[in-house]
Design a protein around this nucleic acid. Structure first.
Lengths: 129, 129
DNA sequence: TAACTGTACTACTATTTTTAATACAGTCGG
DNA sequence: CCGACTGTATTAAAAATAGTAGTACAGTTA
């Protein structure tokens, strides 16, 4: 399900977070869908269970998944009301990148195009049920 | 000129990179303007010269400044033709954040508003000559 | 030549990441 | 209730990476 590069300078748990997050953002993994267990992923990727757990713990802290003891880890549904923290943080990151975009000569149209590109990728992903 | 927080968990050289980059992006530091020398900044901030140099080296790698041995370090002008690498990389980062924005329910209008916010901050900075 | 500039190299220290070995606790099917 | 699965916590150690320091070298300019 996931493929990692053990010789990358990026930590394994960060790589895993990225992969999971990407699948969620793109709609491949859907709300309340169950993720591989800590131990199964651990043996499948031949990394220590603690490394998997660290990735899952941080994904949970960031609001992308939730874990139930004894049951498993699942994709968190988007709570329009609650995730103001996530939105505020993303707004900050976006503003920083926008300053860079303006500096490098991106137009607002180009930026909007990127938004729509992301939108389409998501719709495509959600189609495969 | 720069103020750093030595007790931050963020490395000093990254903090410095951020400060310099911000001043450049916001138009406070302009093209070909000379930056403080490695050693003067080093003594001013009471950090090792290598730390400053590391920040400068990475800023140069990223295309934000250029250094001439024996002369100094300067703000790199934006070369519309040449910096396709920078633009391509930024496009990738933006696309990734856009996926997150779409997921969290940002509209294209909100995203555009952030672009214009960055634009205004820049104009404000360039006014102070 | 003197005093400035950036650069390179090596080495030590600190921090982060990963692994390991256990142990505990909740869920579920037979 | 038992066995096999889930997640969680703790402690320790090893390994890898990152950060900093000290020193020496090299180009520029007045």
């Amino acid at each position: 399900m996931f493929e990692l590069d053990v010789r990358s300078r990026k930590p394994i748990y960060e790589q895993l977070m990225g992969k999971v997050k990407e699948l969620i953002l793109h709609g491949i993994l859907q709300a309340d869908e169950q993720l591989p267990s800590v131990r199964s992923l651990s043996s499948q990727l031949t990394v220590n269970p603690n490394t998997i757990q660290k990735a899952y713990r941080e994904l949970e802290r960031d609001g992308y998944i939730y874990s139930l003891q004894g049951k498993g880890s699942f994709v968190a549904p988007v709570r329009q009301e609650q995730n103001e923290n996530q939105k505020a943080q993303l707004r900050g990151e976006l503003l920083r990148l926008m300053a860079e975009a303006v500096y490098l000569g991106f137009t607002v149209a180009e930026v909007s195009a990127l938004y729509h590109e992301a939108e389409e990728q998501r719709e495509k992903g959600m189609g495969n049920d």
